[in-house]
Amino acid sequence: MEIEIIYPSIKKRVKRQQLNLIISYLMAAAAYICPIINLLVGGKAWSAIVLWSLWMIWTNIFNAPLVEDNLISRTSRLAFDCAVLLLLIELFLKSGWLGFVLPIVCFGAIILLGVFFFINIPKQKQNLMPMIWVDLGAIVGFIFVFFVWKLKSWPVISLGISSITLLIASVAVLRKSFWLELKKRFHL
């Protein structure tokens, strides 16, 4: 059968795909082997931290979300992943510092998100929601740590002030658009 070619020839881009495949196999192997070694050797559950770290690399680099993978959502995701990682380190490796370090990391994330948002409001207002989730998480965390846990360190206070300020500023700047954004996000 004779075919008249009417499409352009395509440059080969197989290398990237193959590299991704090799890396994903290596990561799967590491995720499989580490818990076994940890169980056999005993001691602290360091493999939980390895597993979460592999998950972080996988979801942020090799299998990033197909919808809404923008500056704000990436930063929000990374902030959440880092918070969980710190929590696991506290739980399984060394304890006693989480109440100080975690609020600093979250405070940093809130500031960074605020900068990304306010630097280009017309464009970023459509990407508002991941920031709001992180912000609400930070506010809930602050209320719990400050009022229930009674931990009144400067990182906790900074986190509380920055997260509440960011929420108020977002509502004040966007006004109607803020509520429209919520309406879109929660439509049925």
């Binding site: 499409y7 352009p8 395509i10 809404e68 459509q126 879109k184 929660f186 439509h187 049925l188």
Partner: peptide
């Protein structure tokens, strides 16, 4: 429009930009 993820469903949100007409150089 551009696709967005809501809490229950995805939706499409309007976007104002210059949309691109490009030469064909990849897989159909």
């Amino acid at each position: 429009t551009t696709i967005k993820a809501g809490f229950f469903w995805h939706y499409i949100d309007s976007t104002k930009r210059r949309f691109n007409a490009e030469p064909e150089s990849d897989l159909p």
